[in-house]
Design a protein around this nucleic acid. Sequence first.
DNA 1: TTGTAGGCGTCGCGCCGACAA
DNA 2: TTGTCGGCGCGACGCCTACAA
Lengths: 732, 732
Amino acid sequence: MPGPSPGIMSGTGIKMEKSEESMGGGGGGKVWVGGGRDRDSSSDGGVGSGENSGLDPQLWHACAGGMVQLPPVGAKVIYFPQGHAEQAATPPEFPRMMGPQGTIACKVVSVSFLADTETDEVYARIRLQPLERASALANSDLDADGGPSSPPPEKPVSFAKTLTQSDANNGGGFSVPRYCAETIFPPLDYSIDPPVQTVLAKDVHGERWKFRHIYRGTPRRHLLTTGWSTFVNQKKLVAGDAIVFLRTASGELCVGVRRSMRGTGGSDSSNWSGGSSTSHHRPNRWEVKGTESFSDFLGGDNGAGMISSSGSSGSRGGPGSSNTILGIGIPGTSTTSSFARNRARVTAQSVLEAASLAVQGQPFEVVYYPRASTAEFCVKAQAVKAALDHSWYPGMRFKMAFETEDSSRISWFMGSISAVQPADPIWHKSPWRVLQVTWDEPDLLQGVSRVSPWQVELVSTLPMQLPPFTLPKKKMRTTQPSEMNLHGQGLMGMPLTTPPNVYGQMNPWAHGLNVEEVSAGMQGARHDRLLGLALPEKFRPGKLQSGFFTAPEGYYPDHARRGGGGGVGGDPHLSAFPLQDRASNFSSLISSLGGAVNPRSVEHVSTNPWSGGTANNKQNSSTTFVLFGQAINTDSNKSQPQHSGRSSSEGPSLQHLTEESSTKRKESPSDSCQSNNFERNQKYISGISSYGRPSEGKGAEFQKWVPWLDMERSGEKLSASSGILPSQRGAW
Amino acid sequence: MPGPSPGIMSGTGIKMEKSEESMGGGGGGKVWVGGGRDRDSSSDGGVGSGENSGLDPQLWHACAGGMVQLPPVGAKVIYFPQGHAEQAATPPEFPRMMGPQGTIACKVVSVSFLADTETDEVYARIRLQPLERASALANSDLDADGGPSSPPPEKPVSFAKTLTQSDANNGGGFSVPRYCAETIFPPLDYSIDPPVQTVLAKDVHGERWKFRHIYRGTPRRHLLTTGWSTFVNQKKLVAGDAIVFLRTASGELCVGVRRSMRGTGGSDSSNWSGGSSTSHHRPNRWEVKGTESFSDFLGGDNGAGMISSSGSSGSRGGPGSSNTILGIGIPGTSTTSSFARNRARVTAQSVLEAASLAVQGQPFEVVYYPRASTAEFCVKAQAVKAALDHSWYPGMRFKMAFETEDSSRISWFMGSISAVQPADPIWHKSPWRVLQVTWDEPDLLQGVSRVSPWQVELVSTLPMQLPPFTLPKKKMRTTQPSEMNLHGQGLMGMPLTTPPNVYGQMNPWAHGLNVEEVSAGMQGARHDRLLGLALPEKFRPGKLQSGFFTAPEGYYPDHARRGGGGGVGGDPHLSAFPLQDRASNFSSLISSLGGAVNPRSVEHVSTNPWSGGTANNKQNSSTTFVLFGQAINTDSNKSQPQHSGRSSSEGPSLQHLTEESSTKRKESPSDSCQSNNFERNQKYISGISSYGRPSEGKGAEFQKWVPWLDMERSGEKLSASSGILPSQRGAW
DNA sequence: TTGTAGGCGTCGCGCCGACAA
DNA sequence: TTGTCGGCGCGACGCCTACAA
């Protein structure tokens, strides 16, 4: 036949009309599209101001995964160039002039939710304004979190399912969980036999995808048939990737992908046209799995601030670009084949430019890829402050959240601090990844040897009943409480049951976070003017130490020096910090003592990056301490009603909330687990962005809860147990 | 069945084993691979010195097309930043400090033959060393063309075929011309029935492709069956693209693609994953054709040195990159999604950097895409010199070579110079595209309104027998000689039959090409030292003009001003230049008079970019003129034996060569065309890189001749008629 | 000699229910 | 409820000859 071959359509938006005539068994399935705003991706074609606000923030968060949260516009954050550099392919060489602090306090000017055109990987462009002295000292202090600028979005309905092998491979069908079909998908007319309809969904680029949705089989089940295979192929999905269906407030159905953390986040392999000579055939969906371990998520140990070479996605770039021009002496000529096959999220140059602008106090932009296996480098200032409010020393026990390999849940891993050491001597004053840790499950978390204080949550080291961790596929090694104690004891060489020393809240990092000092860089002459207003007399520049985490002289009580004694690489100068007002820092004492005060509950310090930091500031007595270069008066009477009691480490408050959460949990009648708060906490958290229906009787194990998307429920359920991830959602 | 789905191979080099068992009818075809060096593309994986020498130069040239020639290492070239800028997506803004010359004389340090990893588009990375005063003035003068550094490669055998619709579309087979099968492909064993074998060919990346080659059908014909369809799909070939088979001297079979000039060279469309929202299905092979006209090849008119927006591939960039970050204030952050979807060959920044380094006299690199529809911007110095040896004025008739749409042949188009004006006021002294032209076929060459002198070849304007041009698909409008004359007359307002004025060889461009002046930039103080050695007294800096092509005062004879009189935009200051030694410039007189001296032959000035430039320097009397800042003594006795007689515009010499070529052409016995040299010239040229066998009886119409690949034959046949393309091959 | 059209065999995609976890 | 498997129908890829330019 002459003319173009049949079955070819011109690209007019909707995919795959193939075999449409064979779709409907009867009545010929209706087409349903949500009535919301029609976002066409025809904007921002020019070169100039490419400020397109990107995709739906809800969809963005659904694709980013349950652990990712972005600061809202107006929030105060700490920008860590070190962390920024971890997203670069080649480690940038920071000039010395940036100073040893590595922390720049900023205000979030704008946040754009974007998605990679090729891989659908979501990323955010965050515009930051370094805080000047005036604003830093103004009374719009740390509590200014952006306030109502980002109101909680209308409750959308989303659903994420990790693709099975059958979904990604077999026969081209997708098994739709009933909950998804009944709550996310458009209503199906069950009167026709078989019930069938056409579902249209928009992806992150605003493109519509067409799926045949049928309810058939014995027993009946929901399936996506026609259209699904094309989607899988085009998006290059593999088993283990997750697909997100989301129904916006306007009723529009969206679809996104959240690739598995395995491999390099699905980027290297999904770039099938990427120049390597190894495979010119389209790579099979089953070839893409890398060998990286589960531990990719937090980037791991960067010996000197570099990207780890132990499986992190950073140190690639060579293979796969055999013809890459790299401008041996002329960087500019390297543009022609810079197709960015090596999935460096950002370039070293951009990191340097951002950091340079930051230290100069000029507004700058950063691009953050939440699924790039590196930690967030724009951390809410309150979280950093809260984490640095108290001291960290070797031997501390903590837990830390990780996304499971299929990104469907979040698991908590236990570990111990082995040393407190700056990650990079360049920034020897930066708290970034200052904690060197050892894990109870070292094999699963290989490569993750350094974390930042705000990423972890301290737990008691006292004997208590700990439930076994549940891991997605590999049964986790159950750590017995006694064994844990022995472990900690052996590691630290210090009996943890011995009452730990009392450390003060004040430490060098606190004023190390002062943006003014960072801006001043090496110009010590400016300290007087900059710090004079806020710092108490004893912290005037004359007392400031430029050394390696050396506290001001005379501020180390003798017993404080014992804190890190005998630890693995523990430096007493690092782990012990002066007590400003010993008597008034009761909360710090509590957190140091862990569960010793109230053995019934697991003690924790809310140090999640996005937690509000109001956790352990509740004190019985008012005191003044200094953080971020300004005096903060903590008064127990200054309670925030909407957050009251959250994550409080005080016994009575915690007790109250525990009871409250227990009463609210009656919607899971079959839940017989009442052992302790920790177990409950873990159970709820592990349900994040997984699927399941709230009305099911299985208990909370698969409770659907996407942090950003389902605020009310999460707020109720999670605030009581730990105050982790969701606790400060409202504060944003 | 459990396990991975069947039919999946791991990428181990050779493609498509599918249905191999159904291949051989009997005997099961043998596999043939050439025994040459095995170039694996596993090198250059690192970041540092990416100096990979790329692919086979012969294959590179075969893919680049018949009109592309690169200077060899050691050659002296003129680098035109203006021309370089035409390969950039966005026009670079050159700083004023670069000066108005826009010409930098350089020596070719290295040439790397490369191919785009994604599109297979060939490109070259040329490393250039600007010539300093010392070397520029040294006696290793313009004749230093690199000499034996790039010896003519051993005669390879190549074949190019433009894909028919059947080749690209129907049934997945490729109809192999008999000549290709018998001379390029490995020998086929005809004793088995049907004769069948497996042919392996390496592409530009060194990857092997496997084809089933069968000889069957009635009448018998050669076909590629199994493997061909995959190749077409992977390479995204469409009808009109050309495939190149090449057998290297070592016996290795290579395959390359040479995409049609239509569209954007197959780049935009072949980038099927490129983010636009218009088509998410794999684009059909028949959708990729653009609407650009045939005239893309030379880029067209750049009003102010910018990329033309009239269909050239330069002014794209918007659509298809809806999510592109372009660093509104922070260029460094724009790296993440710079997947270069818009097929900008080079960036404006790289052009600027190259130009900056060039004017600073530092070595630099340029990347040249021969199929990017722009003119070569590194032109052999001799060609430029030869072109500027004589004057250009409105009304001159010329012809210019273009590649046909399917890139199989080269057609010559006739035109007239309408004005001589600098293309860009920034470089008002640059000869780049200084000729504003009108075409006898304006509809076919829309957009090509400016050309450079070395791109065209002057022809006589006297009445003579001109053969009709042959165009591939659209019958060209036949221009009758009388009509041409009238056309020219009407356009210029000047009867061209009137003996033109006699112009001298000296003109401002000549010393405008002096590298010293360019290097000095605006620093006029250095002129004395730099130019004192070579320039005659009257060209000392005090006489140098900074104006708009204004010749030194007193150098315009009255009659010279009449040259451009009444022309369309013709400026007498531009078109008329002083005569230095009127009596001694006989050759210039001849070229100006065209065929008037010897009406039997078409007169021409060898101004092809790669022609040697020795054409019209032959003079009966010795004289000294200045070009490139050095005195050149032209003496007719100083003949170069290996080039002697080529492209001479003297009557006797031309006559001699015409006879010589006639005798050598006896290998085409049926050729009855003996009308004139022009027709013969065109016929031979039009056979460039097309297919056909030399032994066939059809005459020279489809004479196979690939310039770089078949030197001997082409040298014989073409030097006599015009000395165009092949004439100086040996000089390289 | 080779471009095009049509025949037709074969392969595999993808829709399906069965079965089991 | 849903993951996986085997069945199988249909569409299309692609190999082939016939015919014509």
